[in-house]
Design a protein around this nucleic acid. Structure first.
Length: 368
DNA sequence: CAAACCGGGATCTGCCATTTAA
DNA sequence: TTAAATGGCAGATCCCGGTTTG
Protein backbone atom coordinates (compact mmCIF):
# COMPACT_ATOMS: atom_id res chain seq x y z
CA UNK A 1 0.00 0.00 0.00
CA UNK A 2 2.73 2.39 1.02
CA UNK A 3 4.79 1.52 -2.03
CA UNK A 4 1.86 2.13 -4.31
CA UNK A 5 1.38 5.59 -2.90
CA UNK A 6 5.01 6.41 -3.37
CA UNK A 7 4.90 5.28 -6.96
CA UNK A 8 1.77 7.25 -7.64
CA UNK A 9 3.35 10.30 -6.11
CA UNK A 10 6.45 9.95 -8.20
CA UNK A 11 4.57 9.32 -11.41
CA UNK A 12 1.09 10.65 -10.97
CA UNK A 13 0.19 11.43 -14.55
CA UNK A 14 0.17 8.00 -16.19
CA UNK A 15 -0.69 4.89 -14.26
CA UNK A 16 2.79 3.55 -14.59
CA UNK A 17 4.49 1.14 -12.26
CA UNK A 18 8.00 2.20 -12.94
CA UNK A 19 10.21 4.98 -11.87
CA UNK A 20 12.01 7.04 -14.41
CA UNK A 21 15.53 5.81 -14.81
CA UNK A 22 17.71 7.89 -12.52
CA UNK A 23 20.61 9.91 -13.89
CA UNK A 24 23.73 7.91 -14.08
CA UNK A 25 26.56 9.29 -12.00
CA UNK A 26 29.44 10.62 -14.05
CA UNK A 27 31.84 8.13 -12.53
CA UNK A 28 30.11 5.14 -14.10
CA UNK A 29 30.22 5.85 -17.80
CA UNK A 30 27.63 4.16 -19.92
CA UNK A 31 29.20 1.19 -21.64
CA UNK A 32 27.45 0.90 -24.99
CA UNK A 33 27.41 3.92 -27.25
CA UNK A 34 26.67 6.42 -24.57
CA UNK A 35 23.56 4.60 -23.40
CA UNK A 36 22.96 3.11 -19.99
CA UNK A 37 23.26 -0.68 -19.95
CA UNK A 38 20.38 -3.09 -19.98
CA UNK A 39 18.94 -4.19 -16.67
CA UNK A 40 20.45 -7.63 -16.10
CA UNK A 41 17.90 -8.79 -13.57
CA UNK A 42 15.11 -7.68 -15.87
CA UNK A 43 16.62 -9.73 -18.69
CA UNK A 44 16.72 -12.73 -16.39
CA UNK A 45 13.18 -12.21 -15.31
CA UNK A 46 12.00 -11.94 -18.91
CA UNK A 47 13.94 -15.03 -19.92
CA UNK A 48 12.23 -16.90 -17.14
CA UNK A 49 8.90 -15.91 -18.64
CA UNK A 50 10.02 -17.22 -22.01
CA UNK A 51 10.28 -13.83 -23.67
CA UNK A 52 12.23 -13.61 -26.92
CA UNK A 53 14.83 -11.06 -25.86
CA UNK A 54 16.21 -10.32 -29.30
CA UNK A 55 12.72 -9.59 -30.54
CA UNK A 56 12.01 -7.34 -27.57
CA UNK A 57 15.35 -5.58 -27.99
CA UNK A 58 14.76 -4.98 -31.67
CA UNK A 59 11.33 -3.50 -31.03
CA UNK A 60 11.68 -1.38 -27.92
CA UNK A 61 15.25 -1.37 -26.68
CA UNK A 62 14.60 1.31 -24.09
CA UNK A 63 12.34 -0.94 -22.06
CA UNK A 64 15.18 -3.36 -21.36
CA UNK A 65 17.17 -0.58 -19.70
CA UNK A 66 14.50 0.33 -17.21
CA UNK A 67 15.16 -0.28 -13.57
CA UNK A 68 11.60 -0.82 -12.43
CA UNK A 69 9.09 -2.81 -14.42
CA UNK A 70 6.02 -4.91 -13.81
CA UNK A 71 6.52 -8.04 -15.91
CA UNK A 72 5.57 -10.35 -13.06
CA UNK A 73 2.43 -8.38 -12.33
CA UNK A 74 1.53 -8.42 -16.00
CA UNK A 75 2.14 -12.16 -16.25
CA UNK A 76 0.01 -12.87 -13.19
CA UNK A 77 -2.69 -10.57 -14.44
CA UNK A 78 -2.88 -12.19 -17.86
CA UNK A 79 -2.75 -15.63 -16.30
CA UNK A 80 -5.70 -14.73 -14.10
CA UNK A 81 -7.60 -13.92 -17.28
CA UNK A 82 -6.82 -17.32 -18.69
CA UNK A 83 -3.67 -16.72 -20.71
CA UNK A 84 -1.19 -19.54 -21.23
CA UNK A 85 2.46 -18.79 -20.43
CA UNK A 86 3.31 -18.95 -24.14
CA UNK A 87 0.75 -16.27 -24.84
CA UNK A 88 2.21 -14.03 -22.16
CA UNK A 89 5.70 -14.51 -23.57
CA UNK A 90 4.50 -13.76 -27.05
CA UNK A 91 2.74 -10.60 -25.92
CA UNK A 92 5.79 -9.23 -24.14
CA UNK A 93 8.10 -10.23 -26.99
CA UNK A 94 5.96 -8.36 -29.48
CA UNK A 95 5.20 -5.33 -27.33
CA UNK A 96 7.75 -5.01 -24.54
CA UNK A 97 6.35 -1.76 -23.23
CA UNK A 98 3.46 -3.80 -21.86
CA UNK A 99 5.62 -4.55 -18.83
CA UNK A 100 5.65 -0.91 -17.81
CA UNK A 101 1.94 -0.85 -17.01
CA UNK A 102 0.91 -1.04 -13.39
CA UNK A 103 -1.54 -3.59 -12.10
CA UNK A 104 -4.10 -0.96 -11.39
CA UNK A 105 -3.74 0.42 -14.87
CA UNK A 106 -4.17 -3.07 -16.32
CA UNK A 107 -7.31 -3.65 -14.30
CA UNK A 108 -8.80 -0.38 -15.48
CA UNK A 109 -8.00 -0.94 -19.11
CA UNK A 110 -9.18 -4.51 -19.04
CA UNK A 111 -12.50 -3.43 -17.54
CA UNK A 112 -13.00 -0.86 -20.27
CA UNK A 113 -12.34 -3.43 -23.00
CA UNK A 114 -14.34 -6.06 -21.20
CA UNK A 115 -17.40 -3.80 -21.22
CA UNK A 116 -17.36 -3.96 -24.99
CA UNK A 117 -16.71 -7.71 -25.24
CA UNK A 118 -18.76 -10.60 -24.00
CA UNK A 119 -16.09 -12.52 -22.13
CA UNK A 120 -12.55 -12.39 -20.84
CA UNK A 121 -11.63 -14.94 -23.49
CA UNK A 122 -12.65 -12.56 -26.25
CA UNK A 123 -10.55 -9.77 -24.81
CA UNK A 124 -7.62 -12.10 -24.49
CA UNK A 125 -8.05 -13.27 -28.04
CA UNK A 126 -7.81 -9.80 -29.50
CA UNK A 127 -5.06 -8.78 -27.10
CA UNK A 128 -3.00 -11.81 -28.07
CA UNK A 129 -3.54 -11.10 -31.72
CA UNK A 130 -2.57 -7.49 -31.40
CA UNK A 131 -0.76 -6.64 -28.18
CA UNK A 132 0.09 -3.24 -29.57
CA UNK A 133 -3.55 -2.27 -29.84
CA UNK A 134 -4.09 -2.91 -26.18
CA UNK A 135 -0.84 -1.56 -24.80
CA UNK A 136 0.35 1.21 -27.07
CA UNK A 137 -1.48 3.92 -25.22
CA UNK A 138 -1.49 4.26 -21.47
CA UNK A 139 -4.33 6.75 -21.53
CA UNK A 140 -7.37 5.00 -20.10
CA UNK A 141 -9.31 8.22 -19.95
CA UNK A 142 -8.90 8.62 -23.69
CA UNK A 143 -10.11 5.06 -24.18
CA UNK A 144 -13.21 5.83 -22.15
CA UNK A 145 -13.79 9.00 -24.16
CA UNK A 146 -13.52 7.05 -27.38
CA UNK A 147 -16.18 4.63 -26.28
CA UNK A 148 -18.45 7.46 -25.15
CA UNK A 149 -17.86 9.33 -28.38
CA UNK A 150 -18.73 6.35 -30.55
CA UNK A 151 -21.83 5.69 -28.51
CA UNK A 152 -22.87 9.31 -28.84
CA UNK A 153 -22.58 8.92 -32.58
CA UNK A 154 -25.24 6.28 -32.36
CA UNK A 155 -23.18 3.13 -32.39
CA UNK A 156 -24.70 0.21 -30.53
CA UNK A 157 -22.97 -2.27 -28.30
CA UNK A 158 -22.89 -4.66 -31.20
CA UNK A 159 -21.26 -2.05 -33.45
CA UNK A 160 -18.60 -1.38 -30.85
CA UNK A 161 -18.00 -5.08 -30.51
CA UNK A 162 -17.45 -5.50 -34.23
CA UNK A 163 -15.21 -2.47 -34.33
CA UNK A 164 -13.02 -3.45 -31.39
CA UNK A 165 -12.77 -7.03 -32.59
CA UNK A 166 -11.89 -6.10 -36.13
CA UNK A 167 -9.80 -2.97 -35.76
CA UNK A 168 -8.73 -2.75 -32.13
CA UNK A 169 -6.29 0.02 -32.89
CA UNK A 170 -9.26 2.35 -33.27
CA UNK A 171 -9.65 2.47 -29.53
CA UNK A 172 -6.08 3.54 -28.94
CA UNK A 173 -6.35 6.43 -31.32
CA UNK A 174 -6.73 9.78 -29.68
CA UNK A 175 -10.37 10.70 -29.51
CA UNK A 176 -9.51 13.83 -31.50
CA UNK A 177 -8.21 11.71 -34.36
CA UNK A 178 -11.37 9.60 -34.43
CA UNK A 179 -13.51 12.69 -34.16
CA UNK A 180 -11.75 14.27 -37.10
CA UNK A 181 -12.40 11.17 -39.20
CA UNK A 182 -16.10 11.37 -38.40
CA UNK A 183 -16.11 15.07 -39.22
CA UNK A 184 -14.39 14.29 -42.48
CA UNK A 185 -16.98 11.66 -43.40
CA UNK A 186 -19.76 14.09 -42.60
CA UNK A 187 -18.17 16.74 -44.78
CA UNK A 188 -17.99 14.19 -47.60
CA UNK A 189 -21.72 13.69 -47.29
CA UNK A 190 -22.36 17.40 -47.42
CA UNK A 191 -20.04 17.82 -50.37
CA UNK A 192 -22.06 15.30 -52.36
CA UNK A 193 -25.35 16.80 -51.36
CA UNK A 194 -26.40 14.17 -48.86
CA UNK A 195 -29.17 14.96 -46.41
CA UNK A 196 -28.02 13.15 -43.28
CA UNK A 197 -24.29 13.41 -42.61
CA UNK A 198 -24.49 11.57 -39.32
CA UNK A 199 -26.11 8.45 -40.69
CA UNK A 200 -23.88 8.62 -43.74
CA UNK A 201 -20.83 8.52 -41.48
CA UNK A 202 -22.27 5.65 -39.51
CA UNK A 203 -23.02 3.73 -42.69
CA UNK A 204 -19.48 4.17 -43.96
CA UNK A 205 -18.03 3.05 -40.64
CA UNK A 206 -20.30 0.04 -40.49
CA UNK A 207 -19.27 -1.02 -43.98
CA UNK A 208 -15.61 -0.31 -43.43
CA UNK A 209 -14.48 -1.08 -39.94
CA UNK A 210 -10.92 -0.17 -40.78
CA UNK A 211 -11.74 3.40 -41.58
CA UNK A 212 -10.53 4.78 -38.24
CA UNK A 213 -7.08 3.32 -38.65
CA UNK A 214 -6.68 5.09 -41.96
CA UNK A 215 -5.72 8.69 -42.38
CA UNK A 216 -8.23 11.25 -43.60
CA UNK A 217 -5.58 12.16 -46.15
CA UNK A 218 -5.75 8.73 -47.74
CA UNK A 219 -9.54 8.65 -47.75
CA UNK A 220 -9.71 12.10 -49.26
CA UNK A 221 -7.16 11.21 -51.95
CA UNK A 222 -9.11 8.10 -52.91
CA UNK A 223 -12.43 9.89 -52.99
CA UNK A 224 -11.04 12.71 -55.12
CA UNK A 225 -9.35 10.29 -57.44
CA UNK A 226 -12.41 8.12 -58.01
CA UNK A 227 -14.65 11.11 -58.56
CA UNK A 228 -12.41 12.77 -61.09
CA UNK A 229 -11.11 9.66 -62.78
CA UNK A 230 -14.55 8.17 -63.31
CA UNK A 231 -16.37 11.47 -63.68
CA UNK A 232 -18.91 10.65 -61.01
CA UNK A 233 -21.91 12.85 -60.39
CA UNK A 234 -22.66 13.89 -56.82
CA UNK A 235 -25.49 11.41 -56.59
CA UNK A 236 -23.35 8.60 -57.95
CA UNK A 237 -20.54 9.41 -55.54
CA UNK A 238 -22.89 9.60 -52.58
CA UNK A 239 -24.46 6.28 -53.44
CA UNK A 240 -21.13 4.65 -54.11
CA UNK A 241 -19.39 5.64 -50.88
CA UNK A 242 -22.47 5.08 -48.79
CA UNK A 243 -22.71 1.57 -50.18
CA UNK A 244 -20.08 -0.96 -51.18
CA UNK A 245 -17.68 1.83 -52.13
CA UNK A 246 -17.02 2.42 -48.44
CA UNK A 247 -14.82 -0.63 -48.48
CA UNK A 248 -12.45 0.57 -51.14
CA UNK A 249 -11.71 3.88 -49.45
CA UNK A 250 -8.87 2.38 -47.47
CA UNK A 251 -7.05 0.72 -50.29
CA UNK A 252 -3.66 2.37 -50.52
CA UNK A 253 -3.86 5.27 -52.87
CA UNK A 254 -1.22 4.00 -55.28
CA UNK A 255 -2.86 0.58 -55.51
CA UNK A 256 -6.22 2.12 -56.17
CA UNK A 257 -4.84 4.23 -58.98
CA UNK A 258 -2.99 1.27 -60.40
CA UNK A 259 -6.01 -1.02 -60.24
CA UNK A 260 -8.28 1.51 -61.88
CA UNK A 261 -5.72 2.14 -64.60
CA UNK A 262 -5.15 -1.54 -65.31
CA UNK A 263 -8.87 -2.20 -65.36
CA UNK A 264 -9.28 0.69 -67.75
CA UNK A 265 -6.61 -0.76 -70.01
CA UNK A 266 -8.07 -4.24 -69.85
CA UNK A 267 -11.53 -3.04 -70.75
CA UNK A 268 -10.09 -0.83 -73.44
CA UNK A 269 -8.37 -3.80 -75.03
CA UNK A 270 -11.73 -5.54 -75.08
CA UNK A 271 -13.32 -2.63 -76.83
CA UNK A 272 -15.10 -1.07 -73.88
CA UNK A 273 -15.66 2.64 -73.36
CA UNK A 274 -15.04 4.84 -70.32
CA UNK A 275 -18.71 4.57 -69.60
CA UNK A 276 -18.44 0.80 -69.38
CA UNK A 277 -15.66 1.22 -66.85
CA UNK A 278 -17.70 3.66 -64.81
CA UNK A 279 -20.76 1.46 -64.79
CA UNK A 280 -18.79 -1.63 -63.92
CA UNK A 281 -17.25 0.04 -60.88
CA UNK A 282 -20.56 1.50 -59.80
CA UNK A 283 -22.08 -1.96 -60.07
CA UNK A 284 -19.55 -3.45 -57.72
CA UNK A 285 -16.64 -1.27 -56.67
CA UNK A 286 -14.88 -3.91 -54.57
CA UNK A 287 -13.72 -5.20 -57.93
CA UNK A 288 -10.95 -2.67 -57.37
CA UNK A 289 -9.68 -4.85 -54.56
CA UNK A 290 -8.78 -7.54 -57.02
CA UNK A 291 -5.13 -7.12 -57.91
CA UNK A 292 -4.66 -6.10 -61.50
CA UNK A 293 -2.90 -9.26 -62.70
CA UNK A 294 -5.42 -11.51 -61.07
CA UNK A 295 -8.28 -9.48 -62.44
CA UNK A 296 -7.04 -9.80 -65.98
CA UNK A 297 -6.63 -13.56 -65.57
CA UNK A 298 -10.09 -13.93 -64.13
CA UNK A 299 -11.69 -11.98 -66.93
CA UNK A 300 -9.86 -14.05 -69.53
CA UNK A 301 -10.93 -17.19 -67.74
CA UNK A 302 -14.56 -16.12 -67.80
CA UNK A 303 -14.46 -15.01 -71.41
CA UNK A 304 -12.77 -18.24 -72.47
CA UNK A 305 -15.40 -20.13 -70.56
CA UNK A 306 -18.10 -18.56 -72.63
CA UNK A 307 -19.30 -15.82 -70.31
CA UNK A 308 -20.30 -12.75 -72.33
CA UNK A 309 -18.36 -9.60 -71.50
CA UNK A 310 -21.58 -7.70 -71.02
CA UNK A 311 -22.55 -10.06 -68.21
CA UNK A 312 -19.24 -9.53 -66.43
CA UNK A 313 -19.61 -5.76 -66.62
CA UNK A 314 -23.05 -6.01 -65.15
CA UNK A 315 -22.10 -8.34 -62.36
CA UNK A 316 -18.44 -7.83 -61.48
CA UNK A 317 -19.03 -9.55 -58.16
CA UNK A 318 -18.27 -12.87 -59.79
CA UNK A 319 -14.68 -11.63 -60.04
CA UNK A 320 -14.56 -11.94 -56.27
CA UNK A 321 -14.28 -15.67 -56.57
CA UNK A 322 -10.97 -17.42 -56.87
CA UNK A 323 -9.59 -18.45 -60.21
CA UNK A 324 -9.74 -22.10 -59.17
CA UNK A 325 -13.34 -21.78 -58.16
CA UNK A 326 -14.31 -20.06 -61.39
CA UNK A 327 -12.45 -22.63 -63.50
CA UNK A 328 -14.08 -25.53 -61.75
CA UNK A 329 -17.54 -24.09 -62.09
CA UNK A 330 -17.09 -23.17 -65.72
CA UNK A 331 -15.93 -26.70 -66.41
CA UNK A 332 -19.07 -28.16 -64.90
CA UNK A 333 -21.37 -25.69 -66.57
CA UNK A 334 -19.78 -26.00 -69.99
CA UNK A 335 -20.01 -29.78 -69.78
CA UNK A 336 -23.75 -29.32 -69.40
CA UNK A 337 -23.89 -26.80 -72.21
CA UNK A 338 -24.99 -24.00 -69.90
CA UNK A 339 -25.94 -20.85 -71.81
CA UNK A 340 -24.69 -17.79 -69.92
CA UNK A 341 -26.25 -15.41 -72.37
CA UNK A 342 -29.67 -16.87 -71.76
CA UNK A 343 -29.46 -17.94 -68.13
CA UNK A 344 -27.19 -15.34 -66.64
CA UNK A 345 -24.09 -15.57 -64.48
CA UNK A 346 -25.65 -15.46 -61.03
CA UNK A 347 -24.95 -19.17 -60.79
CA UNK A 348 -21.27 -18.28 -60.39
CA UNK A 349 -22.01 -16.01 -57.43
CA UNK A 350 -23.25 -18.59 -54.96
CA UNK A 351 -21.98 -20.75 -52.19
CA UNK A 352 -20.55 -24.14 -53.00
CA UNK A 353 -23.60 -25.82 -51.53
CA UNK A 354 -26.01 -23.84 -53.63
CA UNK A 355 -23.91 -24.23 -56.73
CA UNK A 356 -23.91 -28.00 -56.59
CA UNK A 357 -27.57 -28.25 -55.80
CA UNK A 358 -28.09 -26.08 -58.85
CA UNK A 359 -26.01 -28.49 -60.91
CA UNK A 360 -28.10 -31.31 -59.60
CA UNK A 361 -31.23 -29.64 -60.80
CA UNK A 362 -29.67 -28.96 -64.18
CA UNK A 363 -28.58 -32.53 -64.67
CA UNK A 364 -29.98 -35.06 -62.23
CA UNK A 365 -28.40 -37.91 -64.20
CA UNK A 366 -24.84 -36.62 -63.84
CA UNK A 367 -25.05 -35.09 -60.40
CA UNK A 368 -27.91 -36.90 -58.75
C1' DC B 1 -40.15 -23.15 -55.43
C1' DA B 2 -35.64 -21.04 -57.25
C1' DA B 3 -33.22 -16.88 -58.31
C1' DA B 4 -31.55 -12.56 -57.06
C1' DC B 5 -30.27 -9.29 -53.68
C1' DC B 6 -27.54 -8.07 -50.11
C1' DG B 7 -24.49 -7.92 -46.40
C1' DG B 8 -21.25 -9.99 -43.53
C1' DG B 9 -17.24 -13.10 -41.62
C1' DA B 10 -12.41 -14.00 -41.28
C1' DT B 11 -8.79 -10.92 -40.15
C1' DC B 12 -5.54 -6.59 -40.33
C1' DT B 13 -0.56 -6.54 -37.88
C1' DG B 14 3.93 -4.97 -37.25
C1' DC B 15 6.85 -1.70 -38.46
C1' DC B 16 8.62 3.19 -39.06
C1' DA B 17 8.53 8.39 -38.46
C1' DT B 18 7.32 12.20 -35.89
C1' DT B 19 5.80 14.52 -31.87
C1' DT B 20 5.47 14.87 -26.97
C1' DA B 21 6.78 14.16 -22.24
C1' DA B 22 9.96 13.57 -18.59
C1' DT C 1 18.78 13.63 -24.04
C1' DT C 2 15.94 9.21 -24.16
C1' DA C 3 11.85 6.88 -24.25
C1' DA C 4 6.86 7.14 -24.61
C1' DA C 5 3.02 8.23 -27.22
C1' DT C 6 0.91 8.72 -31.42
C1' DG C 7 -0.04 8.79 -36.48
C1' DG C 8 0.64 6.52 -40.57
C1' DC C 9 1.73 2.98 -43.93
C1' DA C 10 1.95 -1.58 -47.00
C1' DG C 11 -0.37 -5.64 -48.30
C1' DA C 12 -4.16 -6.31 -52.44
C1' DT C 13 -10.15 -11.80 -51.38
C1' DC C 14 -12.97 -15.47 -51.16
C1' DC C 15 -16.89 -17.29 -49.82
C1' DC C 16 -21.41 -18.07 -47.33
C1' DG C 17 -26.21 -17.83 -46.53
C1' DG C 18 -30.46 -15.03 -44.74
C1' DT C 19 -33.97 -12.47 -46.89
C1' DT C 20 -36.56 -10.70 -50.63
C1' DT C 21 -38.43 -11.16 -55.03
C1' DG C 22 -40.42 -13.32 -59.02
Amino acid sequence: MFQKQVLRFLWPVRGCASLPAPRRPCSSRPTNQGRPPENESLLESLSLLGVDLSSARRRQPGVLRRLLTNERGLALFLKSKGAEPEAVASIISRFPRSITRSCQHLEERWTLWRNVFRSDAEVLGVLSRSPESFFRSSDNENLQENISFLRTLGMTGRDLHRLLTTAPRTFSNSVELNRSMVEFLKSMCVRFGGADPQSFALAVISRNLYIFIRSTGRIRANVDFLCSSLGLSDAEALGLFHGHGAQILDVSHESLKKNVQRLREKLGSLGCSEDHLRRMILNYSPVLFVSSERLSDKMDCLLDGGVPLEKILRKPKILDFSLDCLRERLLHLNALGYDFQRNGVAVLDTSKKRFFSKLQRLSPDTYG
